[in-house]
Simulated scan of single mutants.
Amino acid sequence: MPIISAPYEFNEDRLYVDLAPVLGIPLHLKCEGFNFAGSIKQKAALEMVEAAEKSGRLGFDSILVESSSGNLGVALSMIAASRGYRFVCVTDSRCNPATRQVMRALGAEVHVVSEPDPVDGLLGARLAHVRRLCAEDDRYLWLNQYANPDNWGAHHRLTAPEIAEHFPGLDVLFVGAGTTGTLMGCARWFKEHRPQVRIVAIDAVGSVTFGGPPGRRLLPGLGAGVRPQILDETFVDAVVRVPEPDALRVCHRLAARGFLFGGSTGTVVAGAARWLDERPPGARRPGAAVAIAPDLGERYTDTVYRPDWVREHYGPDVLESEEFRF
Rank of each mutant, 00 (worst) to 15 (best):
K43T: 10
A45C: 07
L46P: 00
E47T: 02
E47P: 00
M48F: 08
V49C: 06
A51R: 14
A52K: 10
E53K: 14
K54C: 01
S55V: 01
S55H: 02
G56D: 06
R57S: 12
R57W: 01
L58Q: 06
G59W: 01
D61G: 04
S62M: 09
I63S: 02
S69A: 15
S69R: 09
N71R: 03
N71D: 08
L72T: 15
G73W: 03
G73R: 06
V74S: 06
V74N: 02
L76W: 05
A80P: 05
A81T: 01
A81D: 06
S82C: 10
S82L: 02
R83T: 03
R83W: 02
G84C: 10
R86W: 00
R86Q: 14
R86L: 05
F87E: 02
V88D: 01
V90N: 05
V90H: 05
V90C: 04
T91W: 03
T91P: 04
S93L: 11
N96Y: 11
P97V: 02
P97H: 08
A98Y: 00
T99I: 13
R100E: 14
R100D: 00
M103G: 05
A105V: 04
A105G: 15
L106A: 03
L106Q: 11
L106P: 04
G107H: 04
V110N: 04
V110C: 06
V113C: 04
S114T: 15
S114A: 13
S114Y: 04
S114L: 00
P116L: 09
P116V: 09
P118K: 10
V119P: 01
D120L: 14
D120E: 14
D120V: 00
G121H: 08
G124D: 06
A125W: 11
A128L: 06
A128S: 12
A128C: 01
H129I: 00
V130G: 11
L133T: 03
C134V: 14
A135R: 13
D137V: 09
D138E: 14
D138R: 15
D138P: 15
R139I: 08
W142T: 01
W142E: 11
L143Q: 07
L143P: 08
L143D: 09
Q145W: 04
A147E: 14
P149F: 07
W152A: 11
W152R: 13
W152V: 00
G153S: 11
H155V: 07
R157G: 03
R157D: 10
T159I: 07
A160I: 09
A160H: 08
P161L: 07
A164F: 02
A164M: 06
E165H: 14
E165L: 13
H166W: 04
H166E: 12
F167G: 10
P168W: 11
G169Q: 15
G169S: 13
G169R: 15
L170G: 11
V172E: 12
V172R: 15
L173R: 08
L173K: 07
F174A: 12
V175N: 03
G178V: 07
